[in-house]
Amino acid sequence: MKNTIKTLTLVALVAIITLSFTKIVTEKKIIKTENSTVVWKGYKVTGSHEGTINLKSGSLNFEENALSGGEFVIDMTTIVNTDMEGEYKGKLEGHLKSDDFFGIENFPSSTLVFTSVNAKGKNSYVVTGDLTIKGKTNPITFEISIYGNKATASLKIDRTKYDIKYGSSNFFDDLKDKAIYDEFDLVVDLQF
């Protein structure tokens, strides 16, 4: 009986020591910004506009091959319109970069830092993160899918939470067909 207790104690002790020195494999994968795209789409009463914006940097963290975190820096100075040409394209881009919208002179970057990641399926995750635009930080929740060395996500962002109120019918009366909807979309394709 004493030998059995000693053996069980020894096995338990070895198991505890082994588990305490077992390391969870964590890997930080750097985003290839030149191969990744971020497409924005904004909506107004009379239609919509879309364009692109570049990532300055980004990474996704994995533990045991499952997504566990991430962070991104968006270069707001690169925002461009892709559905117009000529003078009106330039005017829209200038307006988006102005203080009415993203104020790139004072806020050249925006950031997204994952705060929680929950598996939804084999390659799908629900992410909550802190999104900072124009110096204002708010939580945002979205889904991201990962296949091999690629990830895709779609985010719906309420611009008024970041003090971007220009043309919002929630803040200005009598805008009629000049109203711009508060939410805009980002469609993100990442390679790492």
Rank of each mutant, 00 (worst) to 15 (best):
N3H: 11
I5Y: 12
T7W: 10
T7S: 14
L10G: 15
A12R: 03
L13Q: 07
V14W: 02
V14H: 07
I16L: 14
I16R: 00
I17V: 15
T18L: 13
T18H: 00
L19R: 01
L19E: 00
S20G: 13
S20Q: 02
T22P: 01
T22V: 14
K23W: 10
T26F: 04
E27L: 09
K28S: 14
K29M: 07
I31A: 10
I31M: 05
K32H: 05
K32A: 14
E34P: 02
E34N: 15
S36W: 00
S36F: 02
S36G: 06
V39Y: 04
W40E: 10
W40P: 11
Y43Q: 13
K44H: 13
K44V: 04
S48G: 01
H49C: 09
G51D: 02
G51K: 05
I53H: 01
N54Q: 11
L55E: 08
K56Q: 12
S57Y: 01
G58R: 00
L60W: 01
N61A: 09
F62W: 06
E64Y: 00
E64D: 15
N65D: 15
A66E: 13
L67R: 03
S68N: 10
G69W: 05
E71H: 10
T77P: 02
T77V: 07
I79H: 08
I79S: 04
I79M: 12
N81W: 04
N81L: 02
G86F: 07
E87S: 14
G90M: 03
G90Y: 00
K91A: 12
K91M: 09
L92Q: 06
L92M: 05
H95S: 07
L96T: 09
K97V: 11
S98Y: 10
D100I: 06
D100H: 08
F102C: 08
I104T: 15
N106V: 08
N106E: 08
N106R: 05
T111L: 04
T111G: 07
F114G: 10
S116Q: 06
V117E: 03
A119N: 04
G121S: 14
K122D: 15
K122S: 14
V126K: 13
V126A: 14
T128H: 02
L131D: 03
L131S: 07
L131R: 03
I133C: 07
K134W: 01
G135I: 03
K136P: 00
K136D: 06
T137V: 04
T137C: 03
T137W: 02
T137M: 04
N138D: 08
P139R: 02
T141D: 05
T141M: 06
T141V: 13
E143M: 01
S145K: 06
N149W: 00
N149L: 02
A151K: 02
A151T: 07
S154M: 10
S154V: 12
K156C: 11
K156P: 00
I157R: 03
R159H: 11
T160H: 06
T160G: 09
K161R: 13
Y162P: 08
I164M: 06
Y166F: 15
S168P: 09
D173H: 04
L175W: 07
K178I: 01
I180M: 10
Y181E: 07
V187T: 15
V187K: 13
D189M: 12
Q191I: 12
F192Q: 13
F192A: 09
F192E: 05
